[in-house]
């Protein structure tokens, strides 16, 4: 099942894999995600579907090695199989079919932005993109984004490429100089998305974000992924993952994303330890 057919190392910590998953590929649409598990004792983690090929029966996943599961995944190579993979989960993004849309991707978030930008571009939408990362060597999918955008702006936290600063700064510059967008789609780390939303709020431009909270089953069963949108509790796995960023309760979302920070560290330490890399 779920055999890795191709792998690209995008940055030292970001990898792209093309996985054989015909049933998922047949139904997948931009905005949806999968949940996977690498080992019998492994955790279930959600990853956005970055691309899919219905004919070849493959999906593309892009991930950054942050926790134990993504590190394990990072070690897998072509020919290896992922133990469990289920999807497509979540609601497909409701993408505009015309007009001008600003697509913003931060860090590994460029990966989930790409299929949306591509789909809109194919429908005739004027796509303008901003991609960002901590530094130039961590930028991903720039070529792919250029192929589906009329303009691509780059921002790096350290100034090693493009604008010296955050993607949200670039959004602000574009809006300040009077550029018009019908919608903005911002995907990336939670603090980046929050910053983008705060920048666009005064301009009243509809800003969609793709939330990535902690999940277990991904089918609406456990409620781990709940968040407040417009004061109502939503389950990201079945109601999302795309939400109106101006309606999200960000303080709650940020706080809930940190529930298991301590345990995530323990899991990684435990893995290192088991492999003889114990710190004295």
């Amino acid at each position: 099942m779920f055999t890795i057919e191709a792998k690209r190392v995008l940055t030292p910590v970001t990898k792209l894999i093309v996985v054989q998953a015909p049933m998922v590929a047949r139904k997948a649409r931009p905005g949806q995600f999968v949940i996977l598990r690498c080992t019998e004792s492994g955790e279930r983690i959600p990853l956005t579907i970055a691309d899919y090929d219905r004919e070849k029966g493959t999906i593309t996943l892009v991930y950054q090695e942050v926790g134990k599961t993504t590190r394990l995944l990072g070690r897998m190579g072509v020919g290896d199989a992922i133990l469990d993979l289920v999807g497509p989960l979540g609601m497909p993004a409701e993408l505009p079919r015309e007009g001008r849309v600003l697509c913003v991707g931060g860090g590994v978030g460029v990966a989930p932005v790409y299929p949306k930008a591509k789909a809109m571009h194919e429908m005739g939408v004027d796509v303008v993109s901003i991609i960002g990362a901590r530094s130039a060597d961590l930028l991903i999918l720039e070529e792919e984004m250029r192929a589906v955008s009329t303009a691509v702006y780059v921002a790096t936290d350290d100034g090693s490429r493009g604008h010296h600063g955050f993607v949200s700064d670039v959004i602000k510059q574009l809006l300040e100089r009077g550029e018009q967008f019908d919608e903005i789609i911002a995907v990336g780390p939670i603090l980046m998305m929050r910053a983008c939303v705060e920048v666009t709020r005064p301009y009243g431009v509809k800003t969609w974000v793709s939330m990535n909270p902690i999940m277990v089953d991904g089918t609406g069963m456990c409620g781990a992924c709940r968040l407040s949108v417009d004061g109502k509790t939503k389950f990201c796995c079945v109601d999302g993952p795309m939400f109106d960023g101006h309606a999200v309760d960000w303080a709650e979302a940020v706080r809930r994303s940190r529930i298991y920070l301590e345990e995530e560290k323990i899991a990684v330490d435990h893995m290192n330890c088991a492999e003889g890399g114990c710190r004295p």
């Binding site: 004792s41 492994g42 409620g223 407040s228 509790t233 345990e263 899991a267």
Partner: peptide, 30 residues
């Protein structure tokens, strides 16, 4: 109800039983 530390029974039991959180960190789910 959305404070950190509030679980649905489904999540509480799924983490514990299906994902074997009681064996953390031998099992990865906390």
């Amino acid at each position: 109800e959305n404070l950190n530390g509030v679980y649905s029974a489904n999540e509480w039991l799924t983490r514990t039983n299906l994902m074997k959180a009681y064996l953390f960190p031998e099992y990865d789910t906390p």
